[in-house]
């Protein structure tokens, strides 16, 4: 079963037409930009990057909700 599944993917990628390879290239570049550039560098999770515990995050949002300037 696993061998059959492996062969399905292996053969599919091996005999993929040119437009299919182009699409995969686009997908890989897109995901690399999204995760390596955007997620890691440009778009970190604000609360996770500023606070360690759930309590600290909660305190921050609580402060934002009750003392918004």
């Amino acid at each position: 079963m696993l061998k059959k599944a492996w062969y399905l993917y292996y053969d599919g990628f091996k005999n993929m037409p040119r437009w299919g390879r182009t699409l995969w290239l686009i997908i890989i570049i897109k995901l690399s930009i999204m995760f390596l550039v955007f997620k890691l560098w440009l778009m970190p999770n604000f609360l996770n990057s500023q606070y360690d515990s759930a309590e600290e995050k909660s305190d921050h949002v609580f402060k934002e909700l009750t003392t918004k300037p």
Partner: peptide, 21 residues
């Protein structure tokens, strides 16, 4: 595929009060 993930990134970065709330 996965273009919607950028919206999820934005929740964490730009809309953290909302995400927590």
């Amino acid at each position: 595929v996965a273009t919607g993930l950028i919206l999820e990134f934005q929740f964490g970065t730009n809309w953290s009060n909302y995400s927590w709330f």
